[in-house]
């Protein structure tokens, strides 16, 4: 291992340890893991009875000598929808907090300027902090995912198979990338603010816009969402009729889709929902078909992190080597 890699690893270990010691982070993590567990539990209780019904049907069909038994429409991964949604909302806040703490802690302890005065490059500093944060975020996602799978299996009485485990793994990777971007948002906003608390507020403002407001606008403008149960269903129209009518609303739909596209959170949500069988239409797709269908969301999941990493590196590069500004 060369010196640079060793320095990055040391910084990453420091970041990981410091984050684990943070009380506020522990509280937010506690909230995330417990609400996710309860959300999966609630879904699993209902699911269990559906699994029992399907197994009873299979048993009676086999006893009756039926040759063609309908495959199960049930998918245990879909029980993790709550986990995806909570990672999208609370996970992003946790990541911002991590990013904020990375800068605020070093500023308060006056170690950031010390670090910048040492032979550590901005890239190593950014890389070390990010690696530590990725370690924390990965731990959090793995714990949440494992708790979800165990609950789905134990309570829902249906375990995921190897193919589903691979897709869950990809969803977990997307969750880590998603949170990593918000980590960068928290760190960059804090590093660029003279007062750390102001940086935190700016980062939370961005979170509000990207995670809650923009996706809400897209959903609210969706023609089908105007009436409970769906506008097209209320008008007695099938999918074909819906497509035919929406062709008359090209500009409207383009604007609406454009608004949704602007939200990084929406891309994460779409990819994760496709990977975890939340949406019926993707349930019969193979992994390669899914990846092909979701290439657009995957592209955004690559572009946004690259931009965020560049911004993080720039922020560390511009950190002063002598103390300036307010510590708060």
């Amino acid at each position: 291992m060369n010196d640079s890699a060793r320095r990055i690893l040391t910084l990453a270990k420091h970041e990981y340890r410091a984050a684990v010691r943070s009380r506020i982070l522990s509280v937010l993590l506690g909230i995330l893991v417990s609400v996710t567990a309860v959300s999966v539990f609630i879904a699993s209780v209902d699911y269990r009875s559906q699994v029992a019904d399907y197994r009873a049907y299979v048993a009676s069909a086999q006893a009756g000598g039926v040759q063609r038994i309908a495959p199960s429409p049930l998918r245990p991964l879909s029980l993790l929808r709550g986990a995806t949604e909570y990672l999208e909302i609370i996970g992003a806040v946790i990541a911002i907090t991590l990013g904020y703490l990375t800068i605020a802690r070093e500023r308060t302890n006056r170690t950031l300027t010390l670090l910048r005065s040492r032979p550590v490059t901005a890239g190593e500093l950014a890389g070390g902090s990010l690696l530590g944060a990725v370690g924390i975020i990965s731990t959090l996602v793995v714990v949440t995912g494992t708790a979800g799978v165990l609950l789905a299996g134990l309570v829902g009485n249906d375990w995921i198979n190897a193919a589903q485990a691979v897709r869950l793994g990809l969803a977990a990777v997307s969750a880590v990338i998603y949170m990593m971007v918000f980590y960068c948002v928290g760190a960059v906003a804090t590093a660029r603010s003279k007062v750390a608390a102001s940086g935190l507020m700016i980062a939370l403002g961005i979170w509000l816009l990207v995670v809650l407001i923009i996706p809400q606008l897209g959903d609210t403008l969706d023609a089908d969402n105007q009436i409970p149960g769906g506008l097209f269903k209320a008008l007695g129209l099938n999918r074909e009729g819906e497509t035919q009518i929406l062709s008359h609303f090209h500009t409207y739909e383009t604007t609406r889709v454009g608004i949704e596209e602007a939200s990084f959170a929406k891309h994460y949500e779409r990819f994760s929902f496709a990977m975890t069988d939340v949406l019926d239409k993707y349930r019969e797709y193979s992994l390669s078909q899914l990846l092909h269908e979701k290439w657009h969301d995957i592209a955004w999941l690559v572009v946004y992190p690259l931009l965020a990493l560049a911004a993080l590196w720039q922020s560390f590069r511009h950190q002063p080597t002598i103390p300036t500004g307010d510590l708060q």
């Binding site: 959300s39 999208e88 909302i89 809650l212 959903d219 105007q226 409970p228």
Partner: peptide
Amino acid sequence: RPTASLNPII
């Protein structure tokens, strides 16, 4: 669900 809470029509 959390994201359902964002839509005025539930």
